[in-house]
Design a protein around this nucleic acid. Structure first.
Length: 322
DNA sequence: ACCTGTCAAGTCTGG
DNA sequence: CCAGACTTGACAGGT
């Protein structure tokens, strides 16, 4: 069994390479009042730098053998803000999008976006649903501009509970019909730490025939005593036909008191039992490390796990479990 | 150079 | 009904 590791958005090792630089609405408006052209130029410049830094990160990944990476959702500053509705960032930056996409394809990287938690497909409020669809479309269009197939996924949560979880799950399914097919073809769902458990998310994924990302830490925060060995085979099945190995998120609690927050690093003991379970199913998997120390935490975790029974390290960010 | 309050967005809780 | 927490990196304005 092969286990590839990846990290989120920015690197601790590669300096001054933020892919998430932005401009506040306040300063944009102030500049736009005086000189609209200059304001747009500034946004363009920041967006362009974010793409350049994303490219640098991908080269850093290649040099370090990292094949799994999540793009920053803040890669295009204010892109979906009404103030910038005229800005055609896709055409504006098409060359840089293609450069990134070609590099991803050439090196067989697995890349994703994780639209942030304001994106809520199951919201009962029409305007929230509408802006969520705009945000999802925005992420999709970027992946399309990169020339990446639907194997480049969007990962999101089911949404809010709104005081009625069953009704909110049903509303997710109802609202799903309003989601355009280029988006539904890329979406995968992840269990969250407060509201929707792995079993609940799995039931939705099965109905919609979409893949499910299993977040181990969220499972530890939010479960009803289900056994991993029972649900894991079912979760892994949702990836069949996608052309991708199942995807798993791992992080460790910051502390006993602050259990839900993410620690700087990942405790290898929080992942190893899971890997042993996964090994029973004999499937390759990709593991996304969600720790404050980003790639540094990922490399450290891989190195530590390499010392565990039956595991051998292959490069800086891949393990073999035999 | 460094520090601190603030930031587009939604939801939930507690007052 | 409203303020603040949630969570995060980075801006923006101050020293």
């Amino acid at each position: 069994m092969k286990i590839r590791f990846g990290y989120v958005a920015m690197s601790v090792e590669l300096k001054n390479a933020s892919p998430s630089k932005t401009i506040t609405v306040k300063s944009y408006s102030r500049l736009a009042d005086r000189d609209p052209g200059a304001a747009l130029d500034k946004v363009r410049r920041v967006a362009s730098e974010n793409l350049d830094n994303t490219m640098r990160l991908l080269r850093h990944n290649k040099a370090s053998g990292v094949e799994v990476y999540r793009f920053s959702s803040k890669i295009m500053p204010l892109a979906t803000h009404p103030l910038l509705s005229e800005w055609d960032y896709i055409n504006d930056l098409s060359e840089k999008f293609l450069l990134i996409g070609n590099f991803v394809k050439k090196n067989n990287f697995r890349v994703t976006f994780h639209p942030d938690h304001y994106t809520l497909i199951n919201s009962p409020r029409e305007e929230v649903l509408r802006s969520s669809l705009i945000d999802l479309e925005h992420h999709c269009r970027i992946l399309e501009a990169m020339g990446l197939s639907s194997r480049a996924k969007l990962v999101t949560h089911v949404g809010g509970g709104y005081g009625d979880k069953t009704g909110s799950m049903e509303r997710f399914l109802i609202n799903w019909r309003l989601v355009p097919s280029n988006i539904t073809g890329r979406l995968s769902l992840e269990n969250d730490d407060k509201t929707f458990t792995a079993v609940e998310v799995l039931s939705i994924c099965k109905i919609l025939s979409i893949p499910m990302v299993f977040d181990i830490h969220h499972f530890n925060c939010n479960n009803e005593g289900e056994k991993i060995e029972i649900i894991l085979p079912l979760i892994f099945t949702t990836w069949e036909g996608s052309g991708l190995p199942p995807k798993v998120h791992i992080s460790s609690p910051r502390s006993k008191e602050d259990f839900r927050s993410h620690h700087d690093f990942v405790n290898a003991d929080d992942l190893y039992p899971f890997l042993k379970q996964a090994r029973e199913l004999n499937r390759d998997i990709d593991v996304m490390v969600e720790a404050k120390k980003k790639d540094l935490a990922m490399f450290k975790l891989v190195k530590e796990l390499a010392g565990y029974p039956m595991i051998t390290q292959k490069g800086n960010s891949t393990l073999l479990f035999n």
